[in-house]
Amino acid sequence: MPNSLYEKYGGFKTISRIVISFYETVLDSDDVGHHFDGVDMNRLIDHQTKFMSALLGGPVSFNDERLHTLHRGLNITDPEFDAIMDILRDALMQHGMGETDIEFTLQEIEKKRPIIVSRRSP
């Protein structure tokens, strides 16, 4: 019995693919893509790799303070957060993650909503 989703789905091998899909879709997205205008590619990929690994219980921790620092000043709204969740759901599905595991993962991120979203919709 694997200890984490990270191990269950094959570790970095799968993570790298999920990150690439996620990254591609996010950059192309009309809803949220603008947040990544002018962002350094290496930094973005670094964060996404770590974030994704941490999310699935891989060998890294991504604490709430760091998450807060990274998103501070980005003025992310609830609909944008939802859009990212949809993109992530697709990326996870595309790489063969089971329904229950996807739901579990998304619920975990849902808990971070107050940290990431800085502009509450009226």
């Binding site: 970095f12 993570i15 790298s16 990150v19 690439i20 990254y23 590619m41 290496n42 990929i45 670094d46 790799t49 770590k50 690994s53 891989g58 060998p59 890294v60």
Partner: peptide, 13 residues
Amino acid sequence: RELESMIDSYSTM
């Protein structure tokens, strides 16, 4: 290059 920076990131972890 993207994969390289991903591997860098992963290996530091």
